[in-house]
């Protein structure tokens, strides 16, 4: 068994219009860690994710799932997509069905499950994503936040091992971002591998075990949240702001108010002070 659930090795990818979105990227997603992928717009995060479930095939290099090289035949890809789910950024380009229930049933139906099993899975996924009360609502009458949760339910219903969230908090208000983070934590605790991309350093710092920073289709840096965000040079290169909490604790340390401690939440900071 590999230590990595997903790995890439010198992966290069070029879009048909010759945009070189990935330029030899090598990285590993460690099993059981809360992973955040960061990087400026156009860095190649979404393109990378599409390699994780075999939608895109690298022009050069290799992709591994659980230590085994990804094959690009239909049978393998079906299995891979069952195990690696992606929640894309824009719900309007994911939702196609009429009612929430129908939408969420799409994935399990493609897994060719029995109708009863589909129903069970849909109900469970809707409960986990908090959209049970919307089951019979038409999808086009939902709010943005509701649509987002329906997309999550749609992926959960397939019961993947890995769930990738591409910029899940974009356009969400702070309250719904917070609820979403709770959902991510629950998923992590229930044993799913969660991978999130975001622009928000504060979110990344407080949530992630492990941060990967991507720039220009290459891996710029990877490591624990503290390690990555304390490296001012890397932050500058990646055009990232230092997380507020980290900044505060660094100031407090310089002034000798606290020892070498790195609180991840405001509550932890209060506890230390």
């Amino acid at each position: 068994m590999s230590q990595y659930i997903l790995e890439t090795e010198d992966v290069e990818y070029e879009y048909p219009d010759k945009t070189r979105a990935l330029q030899g990227i090598s990285l590993g997603i460690q099993k059981g860690k809360k992973i955040v992928v960061m990087g400026p717009n156009g860095a190649g995060k979404s393109t990378l994710f599409l390699h994780f479930n075999g939608i895109l095939k690298p022009k050069k290099g290799r992709v591994f799932f659980d230590g085994k090289q990804v094959e690009y035949n239909r049978r393998y890809l079906t299995q891979l997509r069952k195990k690696v789910g992606i929640v894309f950024q824009d719900p309007d380009t994911q939702i196609f069905a009429g009612t929430v229930f129908q939408e969420v049933s799409f994935g399990p139906m493609n897994l060719k499950l029995e109708a009863d099993e589909v129903k069970n899975r849909v109900n469970k996924a809707m409960a986990d994503a908090g959209v049970c009360d919307l089951a019979q609502k038409p999808t086009h009458l939902l709010s943005y936040g509701q649509k987002k949760r329906v997309c999550i339910a749609g992926v959960l219903a397939m019961e993947p091992e890995v769930i990738i969230f591409d910029e899940p908090t974009a356009y969400l208000d702070p309250k719904h971002s917070h609820i979403l983070l709770g959902t991510l934590d629950e998923l992590h605790q229930s044993g799913k591998q969660v991978i999130v991309s975001t622009h928000d350093p504060d979110l990344a710092y407080s949530w992630a075990d492990y941060v990967l920073i991507i720039k220009d289709g290459k891996l710029l840096e990877a490591g624990s949240a503290e390690k990555v965000f304390m490296d001012d040079e890397i932050l500058k290169q990646a055009d990232l702001k230092k997380p507020l909490l980290l900044e505060i604790s660094e100031v407090l340390q310089q002034k000798g108010i606290v020892g070498k401690k790195y609180p991840k939440t405001v509550e932890e900071l209060k506890g230390i002070l």
């Binding site: 079906t78 997509r81 894309f88 380009t93 196609f96 229930f101 994935g107 493609n110 749609g154 992926v155």
Partner: peptide, 21 residues
């Protein structure tokens, strides 16, 4: 294009199957 990508990610193989009420 995006819808197609999202559908393929959820196992779409040419038929839009959902559980009819």
């Amino acid at each position: 294009q995006r819808l197609y990508t999202a559908l393929v990610s959820r196992g779409y193989e040419g038929e839009l199957k959902v559980l009819e009420p």
